[in-house]
């Protein structure tokens, strides 16, 4: 149960010794928690918290410096018409766009995250991944979103994945490391639980569900399993690890379901942008529209908010 547990067999017996996940149970639990009704002042507080938890993301081949600048400006002041609207947690871009975003975000308190390690596939030699990471950190990123080698994980080579995370963590220096499990490719909840523990043992500061580049992205049950993992990990080791669902979270309703899930699973220690993030792009506009609805009393329309 320490970060020195690197031998292939030790890791294997530890991860396979974790209790199995009750698939039906976890899905029913997530669905039940998703029916909670959050209204009026509680809803207003939830929306503001969700905005503060957003990692405003653009990860397209077509990203231009202009788009990243605009997105960064939006991160600082999501609703230009309302100064009481809080900034988001971070901007998340490709390494090549880090210097552009860094210019806008410098000194603002909004974090700058960059995906690295041959995102989204992770299929590159370790040296390339480490160089990718160092480059992003040197350019100004203070959070790194790495992908694990799903190929190695599914082949049972937990030691390879473990060593890779340790190496990337080292390359990060002071930057926070978020480890993307890409749960859509892990096939079972048992694998999600194992991958979560593997990443946390190797030193991850955050575990993140998905890249957003495969069809099956973040879901409530997967996030529930990961929240249980961080809760149990803190109980066993005393170290708190954050959780970031990413991909497919588009509406305020979805976001509030996740907040309920955190509160009921990991507890309110995790109800803070330091410990929970939403990887999203279109979610922010929906949060802003719902926020406008609460402050003005009438329904808002997308024409009144920026596209990116």
């Amino acid at each position: 149960m320490t970060a020195t547990t690197t031998s292939r067999h030790d890791l294997r017996s530890l991860l396979h010794g974790l209790p199995g996940v009750d698939k039906v149970g976890v899905e029913a639990r997530a669905a039940a928690l998703g029916t909670r009704s959050v209204k009026s002042t509680a809803k207003a507080a939830a929306i503001d918290l969700a905005i503060r938890m957003v990692d405003l993301t653009t990860l397209e081949g077509a990203d231009t410096p202009g788009k990243v600048r605009a997105l960064s400006a939006k991160a600082l002041r999501p609703d230009p018409a309302d100064a009481s609207c809080p900034p988001v947690a971070a901007v998340c871009v490709y390494p090549a766009m880090v210097p552009v975003a860094a210019q806008v975000l410098a000194g603002s308190g909004v974090h700058l995250a960059s995906v690295a390690t041959a995102f989204p596939s992770g299929q590159a030699p370790l040296e390339v991944k480490l160089a990718d990471t160092r480059g992003a950190v040197a350019a100004g990123a203070d959070e790194i979103d790495m992908v694990i080698s799903r190929g190695a994980f599914l082949a049972g080579r937990y030691d390879l994945v473990f060593d890779e995370i340790v190496a990337v963590k080292q390359a990060c220096g002071d930057a926070h490391l978020k480890v993307i499990l890409e749960t859509g490719e892990l096939a079972t909840y048992d694998n999600v639980r194992r991958a979560s523990w593997l990443a946390m043992l190797a030193g991850a500061d955050f575990i993140k569900t998905s890249t957003g580049k495969v069809p099956l992205a973040a879901t409530l049950p997967v996030t529930l399993v990961m929240l249980e993992a961080v809760r149990d990990f803190r109980a066993r080791t005393g170290r708190q690890v954050g959780v970031k669902p990413a991909g497919g979270i588009k509406t305020t309703k979805d976001a509030i379901k996740y907040l309920v899930l955190i509160n009921e699973t990991a507890g309110d220690d995790w109800l803070h942008p330091d410990w929970f993030r939403f990887g999203a792009s279109s979610l922010l506009n929906d949060l802003l529209m719902q926020r406008t609805k609460l402050t003005t009393g009438h329904y808002a329309g997308p024409d009144y908010f920026t596209l990116d």
């Binding site: 009393g297 009438h298 329904y299 808002a300 329309g301 997308p302 024409d303 009144y304």
Partner: peptide, 9 residues
């Protein structure tokens, strides 16, 4: 009234 004041109508 909700439709009348709705920004997306």
């Amino acid at each position: 009234p909700w439709l009348a004041s709705h920004d997306d109508v």
